[in-house]
Design a protein around this nucleic acid. Sequence first.
DNA 1: TTGAAAGCGCTAACAC
DNA 2: GTGTTAGCGCTTTCAA
Lengths: 343, 343
Amino acid sequence: MNKPASLKDIAAKLGLSVATVSRALQDNPAISLQTRQLVMQTAREMHYSKNFIANSLRSGQLPVIGVIVPHGVTLFYSSVLDGIEQEASKAGYAVISMNSHESFADERHNVDSLRQLHVAGIIASVTQETESFDHFAALADDSIPVVFVARDIPDGNANTPVYSSVTADSVEAAHRATRHLIEQGCRNIAILCGPSRLKMVQERKHGYIEALHDNRLLVRPEYVAYSDIDVASAIDATNALLDLPERPDGIIALNDTLLFAAMKAIKLSGLRIPDDVALIGFSDVEYVEDVTPTLSTIEDQSHLMGQTACQLLLDHIRGQQLPIHRIIPTIQKIRESSHKLIF
Amino acid sequence: MNKPASLKDIAAKLGLSVATVSRALQDNPAISLQTRQLVMQTAREMHYSKNFIANSLRSGQLPVIGVIVPHGVTLFYSSVLDGIEQEASKAGYAVISMNSHESFADERHNVDSLRQLHVAGIIASVTQETESFDHFAALADDSIPVVFVARDIPDGNANTPVYSSVTADSVEAAHRATRHLIEQGCRNIAILCGPSRLKMVQERKHGYIEALHDNRLLVRPEYVAYSDIDVASAIDATNALLDLPERPDGIIALNDTLLFAAMKAIKLSGLRIPDDVALIGFSDVEYVEDVTPTLSTIEDQSHLMGQTACQLLLDHIRGQQLPIHRIIPTIQKIRESSHKLIF
DNA sequence: TTGAAAGCGCTAACAC
DNA sequence: GTGTTAGCGCTTTCAA
């Protein structure tokens, strides 16, 4: 019900001017030690807490970093967020997070809200739908820096600004996973992809193809399977692969859902993992260790991605102009599902 | 580089007063249609966006809700957060989330930050360490309402305010799980607990004991096992249970980690689930369906808890005074691990 | 060592 | 229909 105590209240109580109180609270040596102590003491008694908003009105920005993620309840993004928050709070910034629900309209709305709040900067992972970036460009008018994380945006043309970004090295990760299967003796390696419009899918597929080339293996179109990201659809796609005249002896799944569905499908078909079909997949969850066989994975360093993005953003907030692109390596963990004991 | 366009800028450009521009942008009918349209048009051209901070300086609060969670990267809290955000954004509020890392000092600091930002309200899940609530009480000075979620705080004494809260019905949930095992024919039911200082552990244990009583079964101290929340420790605790002279024929695990560890331990010992030992556990993850056998669980409705907490908070922000306690029922999902086909 | 006053962007009460 | 003014809480010249 009460209003928080203000400088004015303290000043009134002490018969001082607002200016003096303000200076005293900043421990300004121009103010006599006696006054300073008196003011601080009184402030404490009155439960005074500095009003950031009033401050921000002058400085033009809130000590807050805005984050826009395309969906909320996933380990990947909550880990990214955690990394961001950790770095932000070290630097005295709070984090305000918004969810675009993979909807372009929501994303625009989020950007707008953050802009109205005059946050100090924004870290965003764009939606799958996002193809125009005007809403981000508008932020430049207000000198609000933007860093993209996890999902990079296309290179700007002449009149679009170029943004800093933090992404995973998808091409290299897929290349390495493919190489690993080859080293295990696989020669017919298939890849189980999500919707092909995703840039990440394209990059991972690219790494897969490169690795096959580098090892003089044939790239067979029938070994490139597409599936929606749901269990039923992925099981169908896997079964189609297993039914091919020349059955794959290794499969790379491009995300969690696909990986687990592939495992189920292979087991249901009576084939052994990894002896008949070796399996490795991109994953961000820990329960790959709780199943039989334990699943080999390629993991993003999501927490590090968040931290890095936040550091870049803080640099921009502090005046850094040039965009910087950071690529965070993935971590490959070989477990039972791809480890053949053939040597 | 630029400063965002302000009302003043628009006014200057159009030779109008700031007040007129302000009114025009609010579509105030007192202003001529012509002027209104002109102003709106110009505002758009200048990329004007209303400054929430300036607004908040007058109203005393930011259209932002603060959330404090004890740890970040878990499905439970990210789901709660998602529920909060969903309701908040419907009402035009943004959500600022902070992590106390189960540290009381961090929590105090978080509360302080949110207070300085003059958020409209706070939703908090206190740390395991939190026993004093002065930092929350201080918020009352500034009329910042607080709602507790997931972890309730002890009833206030005379001089502590009473807060609204949203919690799960732990007692009932454990009672129901125990009943379920009894219905499956189990007579020697053990419970695998986390650290006993947690209120939630106490409540769930209480429900377990009540259910045994209600069904005239003996409560045996040796069937109440405590474990730290890590796999190794939980496996040890489970093994100890399995080695008892009278081996339990049913086990209730109080969280994810314990549940999976118990499953591993039982399988490793060569016993069958559920035939030899039925298993059910509290869980917030989905991969209980990816293992063999699929695991029976009791789930919190975390998203709903978040939504409900946010609704209560919004009520308080709008003037609701009386504290309200909402209890969100859990959902019991019987799967293979506790389903005996004995009838 | 302290005070007075201006100004950050906006709204609303009060002119005219 | 539009302008003038005061004030939200704070910092920061400029004066004293």
